[in-house]
Design a protein around this nucleic acid. Structure first.
Length: 571
RNA sequence: CGGGGCAUAGCGCAGCCUGGUAGCGCAUCUGCUUUGGGAGCAGAGGGUCGCAGGUUCGAAUCCUGCUGCCCCGACCA
């Protein structure tokens, strides 16, 4: 490809509304252009990256025996009514009517459509297992699209769906997919980690996320320093090995004016933070006899909303009680709440349940109790894992401790079980001729997000540093001053043709720009290798090679450069 | 959904407070010079100042409404 045909449009300044580095660099490099919030055009340069990512994904999926198909982006409401998600899915589901006033949506995911395909086409257990996949545009009407294509509304996803006669078969395909995903991200030369995860709105059990590691990642990942355990922070299990100590203090009521926060409590009363608890009040589920329910975590711990949300006694989605609701129920407001004589059920984090002689609000305005003990002063609470893990916590696998790093979620694999096959009656006949619901798995990779994540992980002050396998081009040829030298022009053209014929993905800068412009532009768009060809070099029979991250260039003889590059590309 | 901010040339910004001929840098076009790290000089083109009302002799500027975009939040009781 010649730069004159590629329509490269780079800028020195990044647009004011781009916050994260990948967004800035993609705009500056001319890979993408914004159309509206969360909607982007992929320009020729950016599209080449997407295609390379897609091809790697496609090859690895095909290797597992999965079959590619292509489903419509627009889906009828009927299927979503059947699965129950027409009501469940929030405003993220973009809905609209056709000219006959029939309801449709833009597909945010394709469980319904594929399950409909499967129940029509799959009749016998002998046809299973089956794994279908597609690489297709999805639409999710995000509350707040941001970070460019990292969280856009329209995006490209590889989604796969497998169908099985038994849970064992599902597990087998799930493991295959885990391996395929590891291969995919390894082939892209990305540093990544697979972690245990909450399955969220897609539903089902058993799920793992793949994260590209980057300090700017939106997700926190907890990992064991010694063992293999790794989990999304929202899922990472906190374990408490402490035994509850015997009470050593009497409970006393203390006047605590102007003391509404944990920090104030510590500052004003010299109470260690490990002896304080936070009392959070939220709406209870129908399973609970009370409208409200209290969640307790230690003063220095953070409530994990995903864990709270998953608790059967907590209303889904979790919703904190308003100050009015709290005052009506308790008689005191936020800042003076605690478990003693609280007129509602109490769920305490495991750590809280193991505390003794602790301080908390007295449920009387401006008063706290100190020296509270479970069983004596307050009823023994229901216990659950409610908090985020903290760095240094023991690892749940019993090996080492947990630490936290940041990641960008680029893949997610789930074992759905029969959630959709049940709702939509997708069954096959078993050995005995009886109808049996199929087990399902689903497996996604955010293709467009991978491109952004790769940049977040690999860039420097000059621009993008594409990993070779997903770079828009492998090699750039930069002729110096070719306008003035017919010989140079001819040699450069010849080199370009030679490299092309050798199967190298090469970009030839034929625009007669000044050297500095070419250098900075190629570094900005992140081409992994460059070959500079000049009259000065040709006199010595050499061209200059420089890798994107090399400090200096190397002279390579004109005769050897093709093989030199092929060796570099092969390794 | 709540809070905050922004909207002036393709991009980045100033001008607004205190109303009076719309400006700067980058980019673009022309010419000359230059050519190993985003060139220099000279010249040129390009703007319904987001939209709609209002105040005023006069509005980019003051007032009202709307729209779009960005950021933070939607746990810390």
């Amino acid at each position: 490809m010649r730069t004159s045909n590629l329509q490269i449009a780079t800028t020195k300044e990044s647009p004011a509304d781009a916050e994260v580095i990948s967004h800035q660099l993609m705009l500056r490099a001319g890979m993408i252009r914004r159309l509206a919030a969360g909607l982007y055009t992929w320009m020729p340069l950016g599209l080449r990256v997407l295609r390379k990512i897609e091809n790697i994904v496609r090859e690895e999926m095909n290797n597992t025996g999965a079959a590619e198909l292509l489903m419509p982006a627009v889906q009828p409401s009927e299927l979503w009514e059947e699965s129950g998600r027409w009501g469940e899915f929030g405003p993220e589901l973009l809905r609209f009517k056709d000219r006959h006033q029939r309801d449709f949506c833009m597909g945010p995911t394709h469980e319904e459509v594929i399950t409909d395909i499967a129940r029509r086409d799959l009749r016998s257990y002998k046809q299973l297992p089956v794994n279908y996949y597609q690489i297709q545009t999805k639409f999710r009407d995000e509350v707040r699209p941001r970070f460019g294509v990292m969280r856009s509304r329209e995006f490209i996803m590889k989604d796969a769906y497998s169908f099985h006669a038994s849970p064992e078969s599902l597990q087998e395909t799930f493991d295959d997919m885990h391996q395929a995903y590891s291969n995919i991200f390894s082939r892209m030369h990305l540093k990544f980690r697979s972690v245990e995860a909450d399955s969220g709105v897609i539903g089902g059990s058993g799920s793992k996320e793949f994260h590209v590691l980057a300090d700017s990642g939106e997700d926190a990942i907890a990992y064991s320093t010694e063992g293999d355990y790794a989990a999304n922070l929202e899922k990472a299990e906190s374990i408490c090995n402490d035994e509850r100590a015997e009470p050593s203090q009497e409970m006393t009521l203390i006047d605590t004016p102007e003391t509404k926060t944990i920090q104030a409590l510590i500052d004003n009363f010299n109470l260690p933070i490990e002896k304080t608890i936070k009392t959070l009040i939220c709406h209870a589920s129908e399973e609970c006899e009370s409208d409200l329910i209290a969640l307790l975590v230690r003063g220095d711990h953070q409530l994990n909303e995903v864990k709270a949300n998953n608790h059967p006694l907590v209303k889904t989605p979790m919703e904190f009680a308003s100050e009015n609701e709290i005052r009506t129920a308790v008689g005191a407001g936020p800042g003076s709440l605690g478990p003693v004589k609280l007129p509602m059920p109490v769920i305490a984090d495991h750590t809280v349940a193991a505390m003794s002689d602790f301080g908390a609000g007295a449920n009387i305005e401006d008063k706290h109790y100190f020296g509270i003990n479970w069983g004596r002063d307050a009823e023994n609470p229901i216990t659950a894992d409610l908090r985020n893990i903290e760095p240094g916590d023991p690892s749940p696998d019993g090996r080492g401790e947990l630490q936290i790093m940041r990641g960008i979620e680029v893949g997610h694999i789930f074992q759905l079980g029969d959630k959709y096959s049940q709702a939509m009656q997708a069954s096959v006949l078993d050995e005995n001729g009886k109808a049996r619901l199929m087990s399902m798995g689903c497996y996604g990779i955010g293709i467009t997000r991978v491109a952004a994540a790769a940049i977040e992980q690999n860039h420097d002050e000059n621009g993008i540093i594409w990993p070779l396998p997903i770079a828009p081009f492998e090699v750039a040829i930069l002729p110096i001053n070719k306008k003035k030298s017919d010989k140079l022009k001819a040699e450069a053209e010849k080199l370009y043709e030679d490299l092309k014929r050798a199967g190298i993905d090469v970009l030839f800068d034929d625009r007669d720009n000044r050297p500095g412009v070419m250098f900075s532009e190629m570094e900005l768009i992140g081409i992994p290798m460059r070959v500079v060809i000049s009259d000065k070099g040709l006199e010595k029979g050499v061209v200059e090679f420089k890798g994107r991250t090399d400090d200096n260039s190397t002279d390579v003889s004109v005769a050897d450069i093709k093989q030199f590059l092929l060796d570099k590309l092969g390794s």
